[in-house]
């Protein structure tokens, strides 16, 4: 089998106050996969994501990204390889114009000149916001901000893109546009969400995380049809909906 894009092995993490956030988590994501990470609030999903790009370092266990083991010497390389799109685009778009924001990551990687420009243009083009390049982020709609945030990640040419609650606060039209956009991206994706229908639309496989443990890892259809499993982990499809 191919080298996993992300390989999390036996990862545990305790907060400074002793609370266990992750307990022996193992998870492998392979190239081209679209994986949904499901779980109730406080399950440890965000903590897990922040390990994948080396914001948190493993206390026990290990993480490799495309075969590169996460440690202090590889952390910058790992941050380039794992692009995280955070939940609130206002947290992610901190520069004064769209272009400068999308440039932020590649510049940190040392790109400049024509190469940088080409990278940024391609990213803006990929999410369909090339015409917004010189606008300040404050002037964009929520859906546009979300797209620009994704462009900022694509510009780093990551191996995998991790989206934290991508459909939060989007109206139905923006939601379907986002679905189409993600569908067109030829890149491995990890989608963290409560929106089970959305997960079903975009992902092939799902993992349920609860109380810091992986409690289910299967084909998404199998997981979403198991009402008992979902209920046990505080998840549910909208009433009357069957997959």
């Amino acid at each position: 089998m191919s080298t996993p894009v992300i390989s999390v092995d036996n990862l545990s993490y305790r907060y400074p106050d002793g609370t266990a956030a992750l307990e022996a988590v193992s998870l492998h994501i392979h190239p081209g996969e679209r994986l949904a990470l499901l779980g109730p609030n406080g399950a440890g999903k965000t903590t897990l994501i922040l390990h994948m790009n080396g914001i948190h370092m493993p206390q026990t266990g290990s993480i490799s990204v495309s075969g590169v083991l996460l440690d202090n010497s590889s952390v910058m390389d790992i941050r380039r390889r794992v692009g995280v799109v955070f939940q609130d685009p206002d947290d992610q778009l901190f520069m004064t114009t769209v272009r400068r924001d999308v440039e932020f990551g590649p510049r940190n990687l040392g790109l400049e000149g024509a190469e940088l420009e080409a990278r940024v243009d391609a990213a803006l083009e990929a999410v369909g916001v090339a015409d917004l390049a010189d606008r300040p982020p404050n002037h964009l709609s929520f859906g546009q901000k979300r797209r620009v945030a994704i462009a900022g990640i694509l510009a780093m040419e990551p191996d995998i893109i991790v989206l934290d609650e991508p459909t939060a606060n989007l109206d139905p039209a923006s939601r379907s546009e986002l679905t189409a956009l993600l569908d067109d991206l030829d890149i491995t994706q990890l989608i963290v969400t409560h929106d089970l229908l959305y997960a079903n639309e975009v992902c092939d496989r799902a993992v349920i995380l609860n109380e810091g443990r992986v409690v289910a890892d299967d084909d998404i259809g199998t997981i979403l049809r198991d009402d008992e499993l979902l209920a046990k982990h505080r998840l549910a499809l909208p009433k009357g909906v069957r997959i």
Binding site: N53, I55, M76, R79, F86, F104, N108
Partner: peptide, 15 residues
């Protein structure tokens, strides 16, 4: 929010 922005910056290679 400042903390979250800082996290997002670090995630894109800010040092």
């Amino acid at each position: 929010r400042g903390e979250r922005v800082y996290l997002a910056m670090r995630s894109r290679g800010y040092t």
